[in-house]
C-alpha cells in the first residue's frame, strides 16, 4: 500500500518588497514566497534571494586585505567603487554604508554623504540600500537629509531598532523608502519592532527584517533557528513576521579571525559558506563584501532555484 505524503501548505505568503526602480534603472524584488527554502514543491518562490555588494563612503583601510585587493584602486573613491561593483562584478543592487559620518571615521557632514549617494545612484542606476553610521544621535540627525536627497528612488534605509526607530521611520515614510527593522536575535523583539514601526503609519509591507547576522562558527545556529521560527510563524498567518529577511553577511564574516588572516581563499569560502547557510534559513537579501564570494553564492542560488515555481 502506498502512503501519500502530506504537503504542508502555508496560509499566508511572505510580503513581496520592491527596492529601487524610482525612474532610474530596474527595481529588485524580494520575498513573496509561500514555502521554506528548498521545499519548492510545497509552494511558490517567485523571487530568488538577491545578493547585494557592500561599499563604504570612506577608504576602508580597516577592511580585510582580501576584500580590498579584489577592488584595487577603485576602493579609494566610493563612486568609482560602486561603478566597479556594478560594471566589473555585475552587482544588481548596492549597499552603501555611510560610516564616514561617524566622528571616528572623519565625521563627514550629512549633505556631503547625501551627494555621494546621489552620485552613486546616477552612475550605477541600481537600487540602493543605505545604512547610517551606527551612532543613533548622528544617524537621527543625518539620515533625514540623505533620505530626502534620495526621495522617490525607493531605497532601503537602515537600520531601525527598538530603541531608535522613530526618526528613521518618519523619514522613510516621508520620502517613500523602505525600511530595515533590526532586532537582537530575538523573535519577539523582531515582531515588536515591526509593530512599533507599523503603529507610526508605516506600511508593514515595506519593512525588511534584520534578525542579526552572525558568521559561520560564531553562533550561526541561533540566527538560523530564529529565522526559521519567524518564517514558520509567518506562514501560519502572523502578518507581523511576514517580512523578508536581510542579512549583513560581509560585515560579520570579514571581522572573524578566520577571514581576516586569510591570504588566499579561506575568507572568501567563509563568506560563501555563511551566505549559503543563511539562504537555507530563509534569507532574501544578502549583503556581501567579496565580489568572488558574491558570485559563487549567486551561482548556488541559481542552481537550487531551478526547481522553484515562480
Amino acid at each position: 500500500m502506498s502512503i501519500e505524503l502530506i504537503k504542508e501548505k502555508c496560509s499566508a505568503p511572505i510580503n513581496m518588497v520592491e527596492i529601487g526602480g524610482g525612474g532610474v534603472g530596474a527595481a529588485v524584488r524580494i520575498g513573496g514566497q509561500s514555502c521554506l527554502p528548498l521545499l519548492f514543491e510545497e509552494g511558490d518562490c517567485p523571487n530568488p534571494p538577491v545578493v547585494a555588494l557592500e561599499i563604504a563612503d570612506y577608504q576602508p583601510d580597516d577592511w580585510a586585505e582580501s576584500v580590498r585587493q579584489a577592488y584595487g584602486e577603485a576602493i579609494k573613491d566610493p563612486v568609482a567603487w560602486a561603478k566597479a561593483c556594478v560594471g566589473r562584478f555585475g552587482a544588481k543592487i548596492l549597499c552603501v554604508r555611510l560610516q564616514g559620518m561617524h566622528p571616528d571615521y572623519g565625521g563627514r557632514p550629512a549633505d556631503e554623504a547625501a551627494e555621494i549617494v546621489k552620485a552613486i545612484l546616477a552612475v550605477t542606476k541600481v537600487p540602493l540600500i543605505v545604512l547610517g553610521c551606527g551612532d543613533d544621535e548622528i544617524d537621527n540627525d543625518s539620515m533625514p537629509k540623505v533620505s530626502q536627497a534620495l526621495k522617490g528612488h525607493n531605497c532601503l534605509l537602515g537600520t531601525a531598532t527598538q530603541s531608535n526607530y522613530k526618526t528613521l521611520t518618519a523619514t522613510a515614510l516621508a520620502d517613500g523608502h523602505s525600511l530595515i527593522a533590526e532586532s537582537p536575535i530575538d523573535i519577539n523583539i523582531a515582531k515588536q519592532v515591526n509593530i512599533l514601526i507599523s503603529d507610526m503609519g508605516f506600511d508593514p509591507k515595506r519593512i525588511i527584517m534584520h534578525p542579526t547576522t552572525t558568521s559561520l562558527g560564531y553562533g550561526m545556529e541561533y540566527v538560523y533557528s530564529i529565522m526559521e521560527r519567524g518564517r514558520l510563524a509567518a506562514f501560519i498567518g502572523d502578518r507581523m513576521l511576514a517580512m523578508p529577511f536581510v542579512l549583513f553577511v560581509g560585515q560579520e564574516v570579514w571581522k572573524t579571525k578566520e577571514a581576516k588572516e586569510s591570504v588566499k581563499t579561506q575568507g572568501i569560502n567563509w563568506e560563501i559558506a555563511t551566505a549559503v547557510s543563511l539562504v537555507q534559513a530563509g534569507a532574501d537579501l544578502l549583503v556581501m563584501r567579496h565580489p568572488d564570494a558574491a558570485k559563487a553564492v549567486e551561482r548556488y542560488i541559481g542552481i537550487i532555484m531551478k526547481g522553484a515555481k515562480t
Binding site: I187, N188, I189, K191, Q192, I195
Partner: peptide
C-alpha cells in the same frame, strides 16, 4: 523565558 520576552509589550507581542 520566551513567553516572558513576548509579554514585554502592551498588551503582548502576540496581539
Amino acid at each position: 523565558m520566551d513567553e516572558y520576552i513576548a509579554s514585554l509589550f502592551f498588551p503582548h507581542t502576540d496581539l
